[in-house]
Simulated scan of single mutants.
Amino acid sequence: MFTCASRALPRRLEAGVEREVFPVTVLERHPFTSQTFVPLRADPQSRYLVVVAPSLSPSAQDQQLPVPSSRPPGTIANRELPGRGLPDLKGLRAFIATTDQAVTYGAGTWHSPMVALGPADKAIDFFVFQFANEVSVEDCQEVLFGPSTVTIRLQPQSRASKL
């Protein structure tokens, strides 16, 4: 279980409309397992930002990252898990979820750490379900970006889009 405090997001004026913006400075993934966030209480004023990205094809830049080649026999259809590959920023997508919605990131899905939205004095409590084997590079892999590399701008109608 963990608590995510709401963030005051910077604002930017675009075509006469003031929008909140969120700079994506880190994406992470869990190559061996899914990760599920379940808000503990529904609150109509509380929302959170879900940011996901697919993986690029494997390259020399990600050779050091351990990844599974397939699930062990006897598990869910013995499907292949995503392999190596850094985040594909061109495929990045953002969504706003309400606190009556849970989200599950599939194994190997690049995503932003949790971003609670709403008034600064609000927080969202989550149950988080994830397997961890305590080998840090197998449990969580991160890629850091400069603050102007990728920016999510929130639409006034509570929709998100990528810049």
Rank of each mutant, 00 (worst) to 15 (best):
L9V: 07
S55P: 04
P10T: 04
V51C: 05
Q64I: 15
Q130R: 07
C4V: 15
A160W: 00
V135D: 13
P39N: 06
Q63N: 00
I124A: 08
C140V: 12
Q130Y: 01
H111T: 04
R19W: 05
H111C: 04
A94W: 06
D139G: 06
Q64Y: 09
P156Q: 11
Q45C: 05
F37H: 09
E18M: 11
G16T: 03
T149E: 14
D100W: 15
R84F: 02
A42K: 14
L92I: 11
G83L: 02
V115F: 00
Q64M: 01
A60P: 03
P58V: 02
S59N: 02
W110Y: 03
V21N: 01
V135W: 09
V143K: 08
A116G: 06
P82I: 05
P44T: 07
S59W: 09
A77E: 10
Q61D: 15
A97P: 06
V143R: 14
F131T: 13
S46K: 14
L144C: 09
S46H: 11
T104Q: 06
L13T: 08
F22Y: 15
R12H: 11
A60C: 03
Q101D: 09
A42R: 06
T104E: 09
P44Y: 01
E138M: 13
Q101R: 13
S70Q: 14
Q157T: 15
P39L: 00
A160E: 07
A15P: 00
F2D: 03
F2V: 04
E18V: 14
R79Q: 09
A77T: 09
V103A: 11
P82W: 03
C4D: 13
E14N: 12
A5T: 10
V17T: 13
D139M: 05
L86D: 01
